[in-house]
Simulated assay, not measured.
Amino acid sequence: MPNTRSARKRVRQSERNRLRNKMYKSRIKTAIRRLEEALAGGDDGAIQAALRRAMSAIDRAALRGAIHRNAAARKKSRLAQRLKKLGRAL
């Protein structure tokens, strides 16, 4: 248990930040899952839209500090590689 006022405040802040980071990470996972579903469907318009949403979610999470910028770059690179492997243009 925190003993000082400042420690209690840090506990509250940490919990709030943890939940916010969890939200951003969840958005990334959902966007990537929807991109994979679009790839399975094969509609180019849906794939482009899903890719744009996934890249945006990744960038937003990195900007807010929920994930490291190198982790964001790695995720985006792997998504691009997967599309390229399937013969889809970015």
Rank of each mutant, 00 (worst) to 15 (best):
K22D: 12
R53D: 07
G42Q: 11
G87T: 11
R8T: 06
V11F: 10
R33L: 12
S26M: 06
G87M: 12
R20L: 05
A50N: 02
S26H: 07
V11D: 13
A66S: 13
H68N: 13
A54S: 11
S14K: 10
R34P: 03
R69K: 12
M55N: 03
G41K: 11
A89I: 04
R88T: 02
I47G: 01
K29T: 06
K29V: 08
A62H: 00
K22P: 00
M1Y: 11
K22F: 10
I67P: 02
R34I: 00
R20A: 09
A80I: 08
S26I: 03
K76D: 09
A46V: 05
R33I: 06
R10Q: 15
K85H: 11
S6M: 14
A46D: 14
D59S: 09
K25L: 04
D44Q: 08
G87I: 11
N21I: 00
S77E: 11
R74V: 06
M1P: 03
A72I: 01
P2C: 06
R20W: 04
A72D: 01
K75C: 06
R12I: 13
R78L: 15
A31H: 02
K29Q: 09
M23W: 02
I47E: 01
A7C: 11
A71K: 07
M55F: 01
T4D: 14
A61Q: 02
Q48C: 03
A54H: 00
L86K: 15
K29A: 09
L86V: 10
I28W: 00
